[in-house]
Amino acid sequence: MTKPRARDLGLPFPGTPGPLNAITDVAGVAVGFCTLTDPAKKMRTGVTAILPRPATVPQPVWAGQYALNGNGEMTGTHWINDAGYFLGPILITNTHGVGAAHLGATRWMIGHYADYFAKEHAWAMPVVAETYDGVLNDINALHVQPEHAIAALEARSTGPVAEGATGGGNGMIAYEFKGGTGTASRRIELGGQGYTVAALVQANHGIRPWLTILGKPVGALMPEDALYTGEMGSIIVVVATDAPLSGLALRQLAKRAAIGIGRGGTPGGNNSGDIFLAFSTANEGPMPQFAPAVSARQELNIELLDNLYLAAVQSIEEAVVNAMVAGEDTPTVKPEGRICRGLDRRRLAEIFA
């Protein structure tokens, strides 16, 4: 049975979503999951894969990165900040799975871009990000292995994106409700041209009293079965667009993720890794080392981008709620014997009725 999403419950999110209301509304972007669940092994984890371009020839995507609070990891960002682009996939997993996922992504890149790696002095620097799933998963058992990253990449699709306990989101908690993977998109017009802006989040952040949804104090209205005394999670946000943007504009776009998650109530706790990446699929072309000495790229005038920033904020806000709306009651492993509750969809709908 298909679970309802936040809009299906009557939540009046602003803006115009794309046909899937997902990051895959940006043409060419694919998402795949490897979800690992075995209660006998206290296993509830996985890997989420995002491939910005079809895996045919090695082409960079232009990108910008920003960290609101750095208690977390996103590999490859030093180069993104210096060069303004990256090659290959984005993977999201748990904190102790970063190395395994990075190795899996590297193997996958070497295989899919075989000529490039065989003939050139090429190197793989995939983006791998994480949030901590040690409340619902035995994170120290190192369940995530390189083959799981490869499986997530091979399972990629440009269609609807499964939310909640999928891929790396399997063991995640948001505002002390079951969290995980969420996504949303917006369609906008700039300079007479239509564009898509979309987000995918791995939501594992916040405490119950902070939770606000579209101005309603949902956390205060649903205080039961809280788990924490303070912030102990993180959130990864990936923003995709087909709008042609400069590296500066993409960094500015990534910064807006702080406002998007802030609309849900989080101030960005000290123990939270709030780390964001924005990329554009526009300006397709070869790796820079193979480009002409003088290259032409299209870029939207940065003075026109306010509505694009707003679309990103709206997408992120909705994606976080979608992640929680998809949640189901889940037993904890540390400590054992408690339940991380799924957000009560009936009560949420009644709040907005």
Score class of each variant (00 low, 15 high):
residue 140 N to Y: 10
residue 134 G to Y: 06
residue 69 N to L: 05
residue 92 I to E: 00
residue 78 H to N: 10
residue 121 H to E: 15
residue 148 H to P: 06
residue 98 V to A: 09
residue 93 T to D: 01
residue 57 V to C: 01
residue 121 H to N: 15
residue 72 G to H: 05
residue 147 E to L: 01
residue 146 P to R: 08
residue 102 H to R: 11
residue 65 Q to F: 15
residue 97 G to P: 04
residue 149 A to V: 09
residue 140 N to S: 12
residue 142 L to G: 06
residue 98 V to I: 14
residue 44 R to C: 14
residue 37 T to Y: 14
residue 37 T to I: 15
residue 125 M to N: 14
residue 27 A to Q: 13
residue 129 A to K: 02
residue 86 F to T: 04
residue 40 A to C: 00
residue 85 Y to H: 15
residue 82 D to Y: 09
residue 148 H to I: 09
residue 105 A to T: 05
residue 56 T to L: 13
residue 74 M to S: 07
residue 112 H to T: 10
residue 96 H to D: 10
residue 26 V to E: 10
residue 125 M to Y: 10
residue 33 F to Y: 15
residue 47 V to K: 09
residue 111 G to Y: 01
residue 122 A to K: 10
residue 143 H to Y: 06
residue 35 T to H: 14
residue 125 M to R: 15
residue 102 H to Y: 13
residue 27 A to V: 10
residue 28 G to T: 05
residue 26 V to Y: 11
residue 70 G to I: 01
residue 146 P to K: 09
residue 113 Y to H: 11
residue 135 V to N: 04
residue 120 E to L: 12
residue 148 H to Y: 11
residue 130 E to T: 07
residue 82 D to M: 12
residue 126 P to T: 12
residue 83 A to T: 01
residue 34 C to Q: 14
residue 31 V to Q: 03
residue 71 N to H: 11
residue 43 M to D: 02
residue 50 I to G: 08
residue 61 V to L: 13
residue 50 I to W: 06
residue 118 A to E: 11
residue 53 R to W: 10
residue 28 G to S: 06
residue 139 I to S: 15
residue 71 N to P: 00
residue 37 T to N: 04
residue 121 H to W: 12
residue 119 K to P: 00
residue 85 Y to T: 07
